[in-house]
Design a protein around this nucleic acid. Structure first.
Lengths: 166, 166
DNA sequence: AAAATAAGTTTGATATACCTAACTATCGTT
DNA sequence: AACGATAGTTAGGTATATCAAACTTATTTT
């Protein structure tokens, strides 16, 4: 409904990058977009025309590039998804930062609004609900040494926890 | 290391579908692959040649299709990722089954072995660690009525939990 | 302001993954 | 064994997203 998107992952990536460049440099330049996308300058030009035709950016040949309102809305949505997924991957699953960023960069195109909102709630729940214990993360770290369940530590922990519960 | 994959998401989808057809029908037929992929029969033929060239399937024109060992290994890995992601989406984030399946179908190509293993550990932790409380899922359901945090219920729950903790 | 450099564009080509429609092989009936 | 239906293939075409290299415009530097 809100974001009846239907644009390719690729277009979404462009929008996300343009949003970021616009923020840091006021305006997005073709050369920087090419660099961020890891492609040639020539390829950017055609994509800018494409984005412009779709009403997602304002673009004149040899001019600067800025997002239209519609483009900005989409870019911000994608950016939001990116941040949330990256947070989950790095803070909850403890995937290292660079990898988390790379995976988030691809997952952000795959999840919809509802799913991402549920992920937000879930993370919020983990962070705040006292039933989980404030130290759920620590408990999980104990549970998963180096990413693999550390059976010995875990068994001891379970015993302690269970016996202290009466 | 193990799965230095480098095949496109598309190829991975074909392999996954062929694996499933092979299981249910002993052998995969072009027509069924087309149906599952939602594409025309003609498109399947070229892809079968492609997969065959890459050594992922055994294929003779007009013959049946079976996965090679390498193809099977990849297909099984993808299938595993699919199941795990779907489980997380539907059971933890409570995304409805059909949607969870669709998202998993795309996410499965995006995560690597390490990340999926960590997700497995995390889900396992949620399911088994007594520190979380056996009813963490119930707590979460209370927390998120209809996917949105139900502040009132949640506050009550927090009070109770906190006061019963001493 | 002219020359040099940098940025942006154009053109023609490639790869992937599709399509449609015509054609061919195979299978199941009778 | 012949016929019709079903399955599979081929050929030519489309869309997307990329490339390299030649070219044009804009910006610096002197």
């Amino acid at each position: 409904m809100a974001n009846q998107n239907n644009f390719s992952e690729n277009l979404e990536d462009y929008l996300e990058i343009i949003l970021d460049l616009q923020r840091t440099n006021k305006v997005a330049r073709s050369k920087d977009i090419a660099e961020r996308m890891g492609i040639q300058r020539g390829s950017v030009t055609s994509m800018l025309k494409n984005l412009s035709t779709k009403g997602l950016i304002d673009y004149e040949p040899y001019g600067y590039v800025t997002l239209t309102d519609q483009g900005e809305t989409i870019a911000e949505e994608i950016e939001r998804r990116h941040g949330i997924i990256k947070d989950f991957l790095s803070r909850v699953l403890m995937v290292d930062d660079e990898k988390a960023d790379g995976i988030a960069c691809r997952m952000e195109h795959v999840v919809d609004r509802q799913t991402i909102d549920r992920l937000v709630n879930f993370i919020h729940f983990l962070d705040t609900c006292p039933k989980m214990g404030k130290d759920w993360l620590q408990a999980y770290v104990t549970f998963c040494k180096d990413g693999k369940p550390d059976k010995k530590t875990c068994d001891t922990c379970m015993e302690q926890t269970l016996s202290s519960e009466k």
